[in-house]
Nucleic acid binder design. Structure first.
Lengths: 343, 343
DNA sequence: TTGTACGCGTTATCAA
DNA sequence: TTGATAACGCGTACAA
């Protein structure tokens, strides 16, 4: 072990008590200016680094936040982390980052470890494989402050920071309908994940409101990754020509990228043969070929607000359990050719 | 404060000593099977979560690793984090993630906080604004295990996990030359950052080896972000026609994306008027228009190896200070038109 | 097999 | 203003 300097070491060197050193270093009022200067100088010379572990044990406060992500390959999550980072930095909290890799067991394990490290609060976006919300309910019951974001569990006593998934999905689907598409398919997220079923709901509602029939065969569950989108799109492309969708709403951008790849490989063109839309507006969306029509979802803002909410709960400045909605907007690019409007 | 169950609480409930409970929970040998079962059951019922803070104080070991990143918007870093995550997960370490946002002051502060939390080791990729390596030198001297990755500081007593930047940059530049380009420019990283000057070095060497003159005017420092690439490319485009590069080597992919945007806005085409190359082969590279020729740099692998090395140093299974090189490869796509070869 | 005493580094509290 | 003491929750070392 590397030998770390302690308050006592400094105290001994100076021939004073540990408490005086502690007070001097923590800028407490009742310390003689002379002594304080001596202490600070000695601390610097000796390379003192305060031991937060010991302090935490006394204070029952670690100044840490545990972040539980389902994945980090999609740029949405790094964006969220940047927002969280920013809020945490300003309030002097450190982040424990964990990645469940969409595995609920691994997620539970991560949360237990985080609890063990006595994080002051938890920021969670659920793993895809969570069968039900019982674990999260138990977690919230322990009293540890929790805020969900993106993939949330509502009404179990924890605040959530989300977008209006139903409305956003409705918005993009309606845009396709208004652009003239009639046979619209959906590459969906898992039914059990909040954003998966909400986006499906918005999709269905848009069809219904515009008098279009919902066809089960045009919906394929793709998960949230590019590879899933690729496979799912292949499936849609194998439908008999008359049933094949002329437009596809993807549950997120990566899935849309996979879909684009599948369409290209089938030698079809976008949006002439099939229009594709995404969801997130990640960094790639404007750069892919063709540029992707999608819903802009402000990951940074989601992370920022979630962290701010959590910290105010931790610091008991806020007791309200609420669902905070972050605005989204439709970003129209060429992947759903407005040309059709003129058709 | 939420009241957490302690070993003593369990012991009192069972009318036995704290130590027996501790032993039972930590699966030590000398515990009666009956007692162990009782203890484990009681622990479960009471919702016991071992306090690692207390344990760390005794052990002088926290099972945590501090990760210091310069930014996380470029997908390279999330890739690295995934690799680190994986290694850490298997060896049962938790990650403290910090983002210096390219600010050396913020980076130093993050490192001090991490030290304060008594992380067992540090994984660092340097912030762009670090003027010199003195701080890192001091840090390494404290004896805290440190491994640098990507933007490294070599020969100061810490291991590094990097790619051969000089050779990789040489490779992509030589490819342009062999494709027929003669007026090659460079959007460079900061001179003070390891990867910045090494990639510049490789660029220069390739020109020299192929008998091409190095022109200062065709080099613009772009930093590492897309916006910087955009601005820097604008500058190159404003050169008098005869001096304007016919190909540009970008220090990384985001800079290349910015450059692509600038070229497009100038109504020039890629690669006919100007070829562009990147560096990293991030997720976007194959999807942008035109698909980007670039150097594939395996972020996941870099993260994995760096974390493995750090952990073996932490656990004293490895004392060697070394620089580990991760292989790269040239990925040729249409942004540097092989058409030119036929010209 | 089980229990007691003590220490890890810090801070709260009370006394000087 | 300064100091002594106890406590945070756990594990090591030793004793029973």
């Amino acid at each position: 072990m590397k030998s770390n300097v302690t308050l006592k070491n400094i105290a001994d060197e100076l021939g004073i008590s540990t408490m005086t050193v502690s007070r001097a270093i923590n800028n407490k009022a009742n310390v003689d200016e002379q002594t304080r200067k001596q202490v600070l100088k000695k601390a610097r010379v000796m390379g003192y680094s305060p031991n937060r572990i010991a302090r935490s044990l006394v204070n029952r406060k670690t100044q840490t936040i545990g972040v539980v992500l389902p994945e980090i390959s999609h740029s949405f999550f790094p964006d969220v982390v940047m927002g969280i980072e920013e809020a945490a930095y300003h309030k002097k909290y450190q982040l424990f980052l964990t990645n469940s890799v969409e595995d609920h067991e691994r997620e539970k394990q991560a949360i237990e470890t985080l609890r063990s490290h006595r994080v002051d609060g938890l920021l969670i976006s659920c793993a895809q494989t969570a069968e039900d919300s019982s674990y999260y309910k138990e977690l919230v019951k322990t009293g540890l402050p929790v805020v969900f974001f993106d993939r949330s569990v509502e009404n179990i006593g924890a605040s959530c920071v989300v977008i209006d998934d139903v409305e956003s999905s409705y918005k993009v689907t309606a845009h396709l309908i208004n652009s003239g598409y009639r046979k619209i398919g959906h590459l969906s997220g898992p039914e059990k994940v909040s954003i998966g079923n909400k986006r499906m709901k918005g999709f269905k509602k848009a069809l219904a409101d515009h008098g279009l029939e919902f066809k089960e065969s045009r919906v394929v569950e793709s998960g949230f990754l590019k590879t899933g989108g690729y496979k799912a799109m292949k499936e849609l492309l194998s439908l008999p020509a008359e049933n094949r969708p002329d437009a596809v709403v993807s549950v997120n951008d990566p899935v849309a990228y996979g879909a684009i790849q599948a369409v290209r490989e089938a030698d079809l063109s976008i949006p002439e043969d099939i229009a594709i839309t995404g969801f997130t507006d990640d960094a790639m969306a404007p750069l892919v070929d063709p540029p992707l029509t999608t819903i802009f979802q402000d990951g940074y803002q989601i992370g920022l607000r979630a962290a701010q909410k959590l910290i105010s709960v931790i610091e008991k400045k806020d007791f309200k359990i609420e669902t905070i909605y972050i605005d989204t907007s439709l970003v129209v690019r060429s992947s759903c050719g407005s040309s059709v409007i003129n058709a």
